[in-house]
Design a protein around this nucleic acid. Structure first.
Lengths: 159, 159
DNA sequence: ATTCGTGCAAAATCTTTGCATTCGA
DNA sequence: TCGAATGCAAAGATTTTGCACGAAT
């Protein structure tokens, strides 16, 4: 039925089957399915700093020849987020965005409320600040998100 | 039809009519209606750091004897946000929250993903950081929101 | 052989919108 | 007066869910 897309990107070989994420899924009693493999692959091949909405992810899945349903896309996004593998982002657009969580490359976002474009910037300091502040209130910090809303130069000119 | 609730909180007198926010509304060609007055009043009487969802705001409006519709609540929240009077908050709960924007009392949020409770903390430094970083990318910064997601002490014990 | 995951369609949420009416300036 | 705001109900958009079937362990 659905072709696990063995011709593009890395083929799904023994290497893939021992992927730490897959192990982690099995350890939790979840299963490694072609759909989950492909979704993970898509996020891993996304340029650093890029993020996808559920619809966008679904679009990419279809493009790659998979017939994953939108429902499964939503279910998988939720699962991977709950496992701490994805970061759920909210840009005040009415729908969420997701990106691979990479603790070694922390970044935050600047959002233009004029054109909805987003810009990433790295800042280790903010990362640490999140940890410190959380600790002060006895929180186990999972993620710290710093969002800066404003109007970009482009939009300022246009108006 | 709807009682502008003149018996609770500050009565709507000459004082209210010269409220800078009302002037600002009129200046933009908008009108000062009983509904908008009440909504602003509710936000102003909210304890510092508290926020409301559209549904919650609507509930409070009904409690105060007003028959404002939910649609108007949404429309007013949007209007006041676009005027920079309210801050739109997103706690990854599927709906937005709003609070009065008070530049003199900047605060950020820690959200427990276990029980959805939120905790406010003040931090002028983060405020400045938002301005600086925005400026670096030529943005007119409107708001900077720092969200820390984690598990609170309570939830950690419960589990 | 179980039990979990998936697809599909329906439902649930949250938010926006068209239209006739009411109201503020 | 006249255009803006409101209420209502309907429509949109996003996300979740029940159920039968297929797939992973």
């Amino acid at each position: 039925m659905n072709n696990p897309n063995s011709e593009k990107l890395e083929p799904l070989n023994a290497d893939e089957l021992s992927d730490p994420v897959f192990d982690s899924l099995r350890k939790r009693g979840h299963r490694v399915t072609a759909q989950r493999e492909l979704i993970l692959q898509i996020f891993r091949n996304l340029p650093h700093g890029q993020h996808l909405s559920a619809e966008e992810l679904h679009g990419q899945l279809l493009e790659r020849g998979s017939s994953v349903s939108l429902a499964t896309a939503y279910r998988t996004l939720k699962l991977l987020t709950s496992m701490g593998l994805l970061r759920e982002l909210d840009f005040a657009e009415g729908h969420k965005h997701y990106e691979l969580k990479q603790d070694d490359l922390p970044h935050q976002h600047i959002i233009c409320t004029g054109c909805n474009s987003t810009l990433e910037f790295e800042d280790h300091f903010l990362e640490e600040a999140g940890q410190k502040i959380g600790a002060r209130y006895n929180f186990d910090v999972v993620d710290a998100q710093f969002k800066i809303f404003g109007i970009c130069q482009q939009c300022r000119k246009t108006r």
